[in-house]
Amino acid sequence: MAKVKSLEELMKIKEKSLKDLQMRDTEKKGKIVVAMGTCGIAAGAKDTLQAIVRELADNKVDDMSVVQSGCMGLCEVEPTVEVHMEGQAPIIYGHVTPEQARRIVQQHILSGKVVSDLMVKKGEI
């Protein structure tokens, strides 16, 4: 990997990864972020992550990336999952059990409809 030596080089990395972070001009349709801090894991985030990956595979969705993040702090509603479709505001869901995770894939990813009863927050944290 090239070593960073100047502001310009740092800016370049920033611009490129900002696009990915904000879901603009990427090759993907969107991304699903699972909060995987210790408390998230204690609340069952690992099972949730697995369910998402499996449900996407079962439905042959390959243009969604699944990534992890630290926690967003609202432990009460863990496990939390953020769905960020390209060009749209991210939606954060709470209390996402594996079952609800499958619902989110079906309803939000496949049919484009927000699962409003699980929604905790819209937009960036």
Partner: peptide
């Protein structure tokens, strides 16, 4: 304390 206090008891 395992640092997951919000999930207490852990």
């Amino acid at each position: 304390c395992l640092g997951a206090c919000s999930m207490a008891p852990v």
